[in-house]
Amino acid sequence: MTYKVTEEGNISTVHLDGEIDMDVTEKAKEVIMPLIEAKKEVHLNLKEVQYMDSSGISVLIESHQKAMELGTKVTLKEISKSVLKVIMMAKLEQILNLD
């Protein structure tokens, strides 16, 4: 997994790329969580994520819940077909913010 972060005003966009599994979840959290803790609105761009498993889904849930707790928001952007399928399999499409 690789990533790039771009900033625009109070919105930080994290562009994730590659496959997100248990091996890279800590790295993903290390990128995403400090932005949420800084009360940024976070956009996760998932266009280039070709594979995500339950560990990756856990990162999305954790990020969403942490943002709600701190009064900010995480939005999933340009979700790839394969990631959307896993989100729907987990029945999270009504819970997470999908755009």
Partner: peptide
């Protein structure tokens, strides 16, 4: 439980699905 939204515990659910 799938309506208990928390990180973790989804892998076995996916396998069974």
């Amino acid at each position: 439980k799938i309506d208990d939204i928390k990180p973790g515990g989804l892998g076995t659910f996916f396998i069974q699905q």
